[in-house]
Amino acid sequence: MEIVLAVAIGVLTTCGVWLMLRPRTYQVIMGLALLGYGVNLFIFSMGRLSVDSEPIMVAGFPPTFEFYDDPMPQALVLTAIVIGFAMTALFLVVMLAQRGFSGNDHVDGQEDAE
């Protein structure tokens, strides 16, 4: 299982980074979103994987990882998801404004010299 998730993180990151390096703003926004998935899963995976642990405290279970999920990476990822949404929104609007301002959708505001 771990290897599947690791490969998934790798593919998402690869796609994200490749798109981020593209010249079109839309490609970059897609890339950031994919990279966001990859990074969130990565942070999540730092809490190790467990299929049937309790995410909610249950009376009688001692508070150890034997019974419970690691809550900390989850709290971090939760924050990251919301901030990621805010970033996507801001980037989208900046991208639209830039498009109206410069007349093209190149990230540098001007087409390549060639």
Binding site: I3, A6, I9, T14, C15, G38, R48, L49
Partner: peptide, 12 residues
């Protein structure tokens, strides 16, 4: 991507 995959696998 390869680095991320390897790193997460190593930690997991």
């Amino acid at each position: 991507g390869g680095g991320m995959a390897a790193l997460s696998y190593a930690v997991m």
